[in-house]
Amino acid sequence: MTSQAAIALSSLTKEFKDNRAVDSLDISIQPGELFGLVGPDGAGKTTTLRLLAGLLDITEGEATIAGLDLAAETEKIKSHIGYMAQEFSMYAELSVEENLLFFAELYDVPVEHIQARKERLLEFAGLTEFKERRAAHLSGGMQKKLALACTLIHEPQILLLDEPTTGVDPVSRREFWNILTELHINGTTIIVSTPYMDEADRCSRVGLMYAGRLIVCASPQEIRQRVEGEMIELRPEDWQSARVLVAELPGVLEVQNYGERLHLLVDSAEKRLPEIETVLRSKKASYRSIRPAPTGMEEAFISLIKRMED
């Protein structure tokens, strides 16, 4: 099975001078998967993607990409993958079209295919009318789409995207994900790191990294089910005092803040909701609403991270 995997990592480790950025990673990603890599800042997501893109030397372990050994055939692998760095990394002085042409030539796209692919990608990324504009003068969202178009110019089987939507407005973010979904449907293997849980929810499988380790690797549904307890959403008038109050109550496993809302993880929502209401009323802590809610990726993520930290 591993020989067919698009990407197979076995105890992949990267050590820098004083820390283990990536610690014994074992993942097998099948062709056509849309794999999300999540985790707090510094968890090792970027290092993992850079390792896979052949940009860092492996300290220990092995990785096979598109059936090729990463350490031995780095340069060969590069033409099979498309890598998009976290920072904007196109040439600011070049126009949209010139950037595409530049990468087409570096990836040895046959001359007769360049024009058609360029047009298709510009259309795909919604950049056709901006094709003569310099990359420096594009909006943040358009820059990301240009970078994606450039990494797609050689039609790679595997895409490695490092937080492609960070710092992008919600509309562009949605557009970007529509493109990714289309690529996913067409069978491209995609690994995408993201800080957004709604994006993680759109992946076929999610790997949660913490301190260089992969602590969970499962589908979004499975991850949500792993969280103990059920959720209650509470909107108090004064969240600070309400938080102290409810955290002490029996059956409350965890309290998470979302602005002025509190998400309580409890052993049983049905049983605890009336109890919490009673306590709040008796303590004269007024609230706008309290209701059971489904556990989302975000709650699951925070809960799993908290458990790691404890």
Partner: peptide, 13 residues
């Protein structure tokens, strides 16, 4: 500094 080298290194150049 501008991150373009990272992108270049990811190509087969």
């Amino acid at each position: 500094e501008h991150g373009t080298l990272e992108q270049l290194m990811a190509t087969p150049i």
